[in-house]
Computed example of a mutant assay.
Amino acid sequence: MELWIPITIAAAFLQNLRSAAQKHLKSVMGTTGATFVRFGFGLPFAFVYLWFLHVGAGYRIPAINPTFLFCVFIGAFAQISATFLLIYLFSYRNFAVGTAYSRTEPAQAAVFALIFLGERLTAGAIAAIVISVFGVMLISVAHMQMTWRNLVGSLFARNSLIGLASGTLFGVSAVSYRSASLALEGPNFMMQAAMVLVFTLSIQTIAMGGWMAWRDRAEIGRIAKAWKVALFTGFVGATASFGWFMAMTLQQAAVVKALAQVEMLFTFAASVFFFKEKINRIETAGCILIVAGILVLVLLG
């Protein structure tokens, strides 16, 4: 098994935990605060990972170059915007369709990688992306009344456009992070990923911290009151991002994000086994498609 596969699965599991924590935080603070927590409380852990690799493992710190800095800035701000839009979707009464469109990230990442990096996917990888994306979108609309009128009408709904924009920005950030990591040219994928993580979270923390200090100081107080959950969110978020960056250094961003759809399976496993919730036939079909997409990706992609 190629190393990027278990790394991606572990990152998807941790991201599932981070998403659950962020949803909880959204109930006690605004969208800005819930978005900031992921970055600001994750930054100390990013420095710990970099320190361990440099001092503990003895890997040299790679030289910074303009291409790296440019790609990190693009990725950092694209991810801030994508995360903000995704969390904002939760405030909609019917956010399912918007969330489904945000899950088109792997397909959009493939397009951006082709345009900006000239990276081409195999037929197997393309098939895997299409299958898994369709499966995730099925799950997201599983509790809607499934009529052609609803599906067609939802294409131009405000929450659908927000979700699509979120997926676009996540796709841009994924390709940017891969480009930034590859621009460092060594010493190895772990140190390259750690450098991307530290610079990314530093930029995001400064940008969002400055914004809150200027426009929404009350949000800082709400974050401070929820510091325990915020710290957990930062830890799992930073660790998940470290995993994403390592995987995307080893493999194309679109392929990594396609396998990352396994996160939905973790979500359903928790729903069924821990919360004793029942899933309907459409959700079951979506899960089967995700598994099929992952199998196609691993075997043929």
Score class of each variant (00 low, 15 high):
Arg120Lys: 15
Arg120Asn: 09
Leu121His: 05
Thr122Met: 07
Thr122Lys: 14
Ala123Ile: 13
Gly124Thr: 10
Ala125Cys: 06
Ile126His: 07
Ala127Asn: 14
Ala127Met: 15
Ala127His: 14
Ala128Ser: 14
Ala128Phe: 05
Ala128Lys: 13
Ile129Leu: 10
Val130Phe: 06
Val130Ser: 01
Ile131Asn: 03
Ile131Pro: 01
Ile131Trp: 02
Ile131Lys: 05
Ser132Met: 06
Ser132Gly: 10
Ser132Cys: 11
Val133Ile: 14
Val133Phe: 02
Val133Trp: 00
Val136Trp: 04
Met137Gly: 07
Met137Asp: 02
Leu138Ile: 07
Leu138Pro: 01
Ile139Val: 09
Ile139Thr: 02
Ile139Ala: 03
Val141Asn: 01
Val141Ile: 15
Val141Ser: 01
Val141Met: 11
Ala142Cys: 07
Ala142Pro: 03
Ala142Lys: 05
Ala142Met: 06
His143Glu: 09
His143Ser: 13
Met144Trp: 11
Gln145Asn: 10
Gln145Leu: 04
Met146Tyr: 12
Thr147Met: 09
Thr147Pro: 12
Thr147Cys: 10
Thr147Asp: 09
Trp148Glu: 08
Trp148Ser: 13
Trp148Asp: 07
Arg149Tyr: 08
Arg149Thr: 14
Asn150Asp: 14
Asn150Leu: 06
Leu151Arg: 08
Leu151His: 05
Val152Ile: 12
Gly153Leu: 07
Gly153Glu: 03
Ser154Tyr: 04
Ser154Asn: 15
Leu155Pro: 01
Leu155His: 09
Phe156Pro: 03
Phe156Trp: 12
Arg158Pro: 03
Asn159Met: 12
Asn159Val: 05
Ser160Glu: 07
Leu161Ile: 09
Leu161Ala: 07
Ile162Glu: 02
Ile162Thr: 03
Gly163Val: 10
Gly163Asp: 04
Gly163Met: 12
Gly163Tyr: 07
Gly163Lys: 10
Leu164Ala: 11
Ala165Arg: 12
Ala165Trp: 01
Ala165Ser: 15
Ser166Phe: 13
Ser166Met: 08
Thr168Lys: 06
Thr168Gln: 06
Thr168Cys: 10
Leu169Met: 09
Phe170Asp: 05
Phe170Pro: 01
Phe170Cys: 08
Gly171Gln: 10
Gly171Cys: 12
Val172Trp: 08
Val172Gln: 09
Ser173Phe: 03
Ser173Asn: 10
Ser173Thr: 13
Val175Gly: 00
Val175Thr: 10
Val175Asp: 02
Val175Ala: 00
Ser179Gln: 08
Ser179Trp: 01
Ala180Thr: 08
Ala180Ser: 09
Ala180His: 00
Ala180Gly: 02
Ala180Tyr: 06
Ser181Leu: 01
Ser181Pro: 04
Ser181Lys: 00
Ser181Gln: 05
Leu182Ile: 14
Leu182Arg: 11
Leu182Ser: 11
